[in-house]
């Protein structure tokens, strides 16, 4: 329990650090949000009024302290451009992103693990090589390109799926595949090497020597051990997904927080950039925490130490 408490405290510190660094970076940005709000017809007096109302005439540490104090109370501030509560903008879009991420995880696990296992079992054959080239391509292809390609082939040319948008299962397929393809590549490679590693172990040889059927050896003995490191990866994966959704949501017009972030960056809407960054940081920290906590539950060999 002490370990968990320590990890939680550490996670909280990371989040404070992230909030400070993001705040500082955005503070140093040469763009002046007040000028943006005030518009091009504003008088100097108007600009100063707005600066004062937003508290942007205060010294940096006062501004950060104010921001942090609101943050602790769950207030992420108001968007400069959309003039709405950042927390409600994020809340409205979070379900769409979570759905997309969940679907992305399913895609990468189902395809990634299957490809990896098949490649491991067919090690050294042409099938293995073809699969690994596929996974290598998947890892290296920019998501923007993959998304547009899928959109063009399966939505525009073949008409199997809607051309972007949100609402039904059909809308989910292409963005989920685009988001999952990168992970699929990683997982297939990891699963392959992990499986090969396990199949070399003594206990597998023993099982074979006992004359157990191939399938039994594979399902009962090899799989559980080979899949362990992969499960731990899913938590860490959240970070990858957080950057992925920015691109994927923009390509497919998916109304999630990635799209929100992308628009905010283009409009230098600092409160939204801060808000999305913090939410993402929370998700990443949480993912890592879960990965650390879950691993010992699956594998008794790993013990939590204080």
């Amino acid at each position: 329990m002490a370990y968990i408490a320590k990890r939680l405290l550490f996670s909280a510190l990371i989040l404070v650090g992230v909030s400070f660094i993001t705040f500082a970076l955005l503070y140093l940005l040469p763009a002046d949000p007040v000028r943006q709000i005030a518009g091009r017809s504003a008088t100097a007096q108007t600009v100063e009024n707005i600066r004062h109302q937003l508290g942007l005439d205060q010294p940096f540490f006062v501004q950060y302290a104010r921001y942090f104090w609101s943050l602790v109370q769950g207030d992420l501030g108001r968007s400069y451009v959309q003039r709405a509560e950042v927390s409600s903008l994020i809340a409205a879009r979070l379900p769409a992103s979570l759905l997309l991420m969940a679907a992305g995880i399913v895609v990468e696990l189902v395809f990634g693990l299957t490809l990896g296992i098949v490649a491991a079992l067919r090690r050294g054959t042409a099938t293995d090589q073809a699969l690994m080239i596929t996974s290598f391509t998947a890892v290296s292809a920019p998501q923007f390109v993959v998304g547009l390609l899928l959109l063009y082939v399966f939505a525009v040319e073949l008409g199997w799926f809607p051309i972007g948008g949100y609402g039904t299962f059909a809308h989910l397929v292409l963005p989920a595949v685009t988001l999952g393809v990168l992970g699929m590549g990683w997982y297939s490679r990891m699963m392959r090497s992990s499986m090969i590693e396990v199949l070399r172990q003594d206990y597998i040889r023993t099982a074979r020597a006992k004359g157990l059927p191939r399938l039994t050896i594979f399902v009962r003995h090899a799989m559980p051990n080979a899949i362990l490191p992969i499960i731990a990866m899913i938590g860490i994966d959240i970070g990858l997904f957080m950057s992925g959704i920015v691109v994927v949501e923009s390509v497919f017009g998916w109304p999630g927080i990635g799209q929100l972030a992308w628009q905010a960056i283009q409009r230098v809407d600092i409160p939204i950039i801060m808000g999305v960054t913090l939410v993402s940081a929370c998700a990443i920290v949480l993912g890592n925490l879960l990965a650390d906590l879950v691993t010992p539950l699956i594998d008794p060999r790993i013990k939590l130490r204080d």
């Binding site: 005030a38 518009g39 017809s41 007096q45 108007t46 009024n49 707005i50």
Partner: peptide, 24 residues
């Protein structure tokens, strides 16, 4: 009114009383 933070407020600077409302 400066409280509104309108980017268009400056267009109305020829209306009598604009300075007073801008200055609060």
């Amino acid at each position: 009114n400066p409280v509104t933070q309108s980017p268009g407020a400056g267009f109305f600077d020829s209306i009598e009383g604009f300075e007073a409302i801008t200055a609060g």
